[in-house]
Design a protein around this nucleic acid. Structure first.
Length: 99
DNA sequence: GCAATGACTGGTA
DNA sequence: TTACCAGCCATTG
């Protein structure tokens, strides 16, 4: 089946995200052109350990459930523009469109 | 085959 | 700003 290929493509996009920038699950789904945000999230939960998964977050800029502290710590190291509260990313500036 | 589930999203209050 | 709701789509029981 093509699910392995889909996984490869999702992981490839995540690895391509430059430091300091992030992408939302929906953005990645749209970028690869298949599935949806939930399918991307599933791939991340399965094989996210092999890629900078902390650069992937919700459309509102909040990190994935169960890894909030971990993601925020990594994002700080990457110089990602965080909001004033420091609990969310400034998607307005940090959103990467693939260019 | 149907129902429930989930690292989701956008709109409304 | 947060909270709640309906829609979304592949996987799993």
């Amino acid at each position: 089946m093509a699910s392995d290929d889909y996984e490869e493509r999702v992981l490839a996009v995540v690895e391509a995200i430059p430091p300091g920038l992030v992408m939302a699950y929906g953005d990645i789904a749209e970028y690869v052109g298949e599935g949806g945000p939930r399918q991307v999230g599933r791939v991340m939960s399965l094989s996210g350990g092999a890629v900078p998964w902390w650069r992937v977050l919700h459309a509102d800029g909040s990190p994935p459930a169960g890894h909030e502290q971990e993601a925020l710590a990594r994002l700080r190291e990457d110089d990602t523009p965080l909001r004033a509260d420091g609990t969310r990313v400034d998607m307005k500036r940090a959103r990467w469109d693939g260019r």
